[in-house]
Design a protein around this nucleic acid. Structure first.
Lengths: 189, 189
DNA sequence: CCTCAAGTGTACCGTTCGGTACATATTGGC
DNA sequence: GCCAATATGTACCGAACGGTACACTTGAGG
């Protein structure tokens, strides 16, 4: 059995970074929290930044596949899926491990636009946008790209308010607005 | 003349933290960028965190007064002011020094809910929410608090997308959605 | 059984971290 | 002109930073 120490490291590092932040988490902390020796870490990744990039790549895969499959599970129709996104978000916000969007936080800590961490963060949002645009097109929206951008805006806003504990039900509020946008395309409102 | 070194420090430190982040900015960097000696800094603030808190307090005052006065300048009617917020945001996004919302970034770096930086960040959003609620009430909205929450969601989402360079005109997109929400309360569309 | 890749623990590197000590300017009010 | 208050530069503290060196252990495959 080769449990692939590298994947184990990335997956465990993800949790630590997600909970404690990137700059605030030192390599020694990472060693202690993951139980993997520093020697091994640096055998797999040249620098801390490289590890962070691998972490974000994993997060991107995990989050997108979770969100999209959850949306698909909640509705068959494209417009219904878009609305269901906010139901899925509400489920996420309710989980005890919820701590905001990892990519918003990553881009907040690495603001330099030339930095790969920043770039990967915006690419993640870009990919969400494309998926939403596809669904909006399938739903017969008159301006699919525009509708997708508006829904993405609602999603990001809801995540921020949830992470900052500003309002009690950010997903519900966003869903309410989303319903207004989607009403023309929802079958049997 | 007593130019109040403390205020000068806080105002200059604000710019450095805003551009480079909190954890990523060391005290030595702060000394170099502000031109104020470390001895003086620690005569005014016991710890780095205390300085950050003062910075956020200043930012809160500056941003709120800027946004509210800009909204008021753009429209007399309450509903018009709420819509004008997104015009004001667009102006902000266009400024070269724009680098996202300082409070979103602060709460991303200080995730511990007991930490004063986190608390102050949510309080800032809370105060925005109250202002919006007041305007929504004045506009005659049927659910002022709900409308305020939805508009705040749009605002935060737009800021995130602007800071991450995901879409070309986040303020315009958010404004479009906001108009739908506000339409019943806007005089003469 | 031996090999060899992969992982470990520990000690260490130079640098930077947040923060302090202290002796020296600078400066407005009396 | 003198006194405080407030600034400064510099040297320093112990701890933590990202990263490396090296000798050692583990374990599956030929």
């Amino acid at each position: 059995m080769r449990p692939n120490k590298r994947d184990e490291l990335v997956s465990k590092a993800l949790n630590v970074f997600y909970r404690s932040g990137f700059h605030a988490t030192g390599m020694d902390t990472l060693v202690k929290e993951t139980g993997i020796s520093k020697t091994s870490i640096y055998k797999h990744f040249r620098t801390k930044d490289d590890l962070i990039i691998a972490v974000l790549r994993l997060r991107d895969e995990n989050f997108r596949s979770w969100l999209f499959s959850r949306m698909a599970a909640l509705s068959d129709a494209p417009a219904g899926q878009l609305l269901a996104m906010f139901t899925a978000l509400g489920e996420w916000f309710g989980k005890p491990e919820f701590a905001g969007c990892m990519f918003i936080k990553a881009s907040a800590e690495f603001q330099n636009r030339a930095h790969p961490v920043y770039q990967q963060s915006t690419e993640h949002k870009q990919m969400l946008l494309e998926h939403f645009t596809g669904l909006a097109k399938a739903a017969g929206a008159s301006d699919p790209a525009g509708l997708a951008r508006q829904l993405l805006t609602l999603k990001e806003g809801a995540i921020v308010l949830a992470a900052m504990s500003v309002t009690p039900d950010p997903a519900g509020d966003a869903r309410y607005t989303a319903r207004m946008l989607l009403q023309p395309y929802l079958a049997g409102g």
